[in-house]
Computed example of a mutant assay.
Amino acid sequence: MYEREERKKIIVFTGPDGSGRKSVAEAVGQTFGMEKIISFVTRLPRPGEVNGQDYHFIAHATYREMEEQGEFLESVEIDGNLYGIRSLDIENKFSHHDSVYLILNREGASILKKIYGDMVIRLFLYADRRTIEQRERSRGLAEDVIAKHLSHYDLEMSYRGSCEHAFENYDLGQTTYEITNALEQYLQRDLVDKD
């Protein structure tokens, strides 16, 4: 007889801005039926971003109030903007799902790994600098935003060796396939022979 063992996993998609984290994360999340944890941020939405779907876009003062009340599990500042994950959001999703996913930079990914340990699987996505620049231009991002992202590129790339898995992302379908195969060992091994 087989019994289901609970294996709660937090899948973190990380890597430089423009590496395709969001597209790959959504495709993989859909494949496994994982719920997305949405970060809170104090910056304005970028072209194509939707409030409540990509981020919760909130005022700086509101963010600080939530932070003072201890709502954020992790909080980081990037280029003057604050980003945070609420512990309540993770707890709520875990009450209905075994696996959740997030899209975070290296600081956020490191904080979650320290808090949750082996529950966190970090998937590092990357592409070369020129490809990232082209992707960001095609998304309609302002030149100053692209320049800021590229200024973080080397630092973000240095985090690759700290992650459980790394994937070069030039083809969405191929990368999604490779990540799905890698995650099978974490997300599908929940059947254990009890006989």
Rank of each mutant, 00 (worst) to 15 (best):
G70Q: 08
I38C: 03
C163V: 00
H97F: 06
L150H: 04
G161S: 12
S110T: 10
K148Y: 10
K148I: 09
Y101L: 08
Q53Y: 09
D128K: 11
G173L: 15
G84F: 02
D79E: 13
A127H: 07
E133P: 05
D89C: 00
S110A: 15
E156S: 07
C163P: 00
I37F: 07
N81W: 05
H152T: 08
I85A: 07
D54V: 03
E68N: 10
L104R: 14
E74C: 07
G161K: 11
G117L: 11
L141D: 14
D190C: 00
G108S: 04
F94L: 10
P16T: 05
Y177A: 05
Y55L: 02
T180R: 07
T175N: 05
D79P: 02
L123A: 09
L73I: 04
K113N: 05
E164C: 00
S162F: 13
G15M: 12
S162P: 01
G161H: 06
A147L: 08
E67D: 15
G18H: 01
L141S: 04
A25C: 06
L104I: 05
Q174W: 04
S138E: 15
F40I: 01
E5N: 01
I78E: 12
S138D: 15
R122L: 05
I78S: 04
K36N: 11
V100N: 03
V28I: 10
Y83F: 15
Q53L: 06
D17C: 12
S138T: 10
L112P: 14
I58S: 04
R129P: 00
L73M: 07
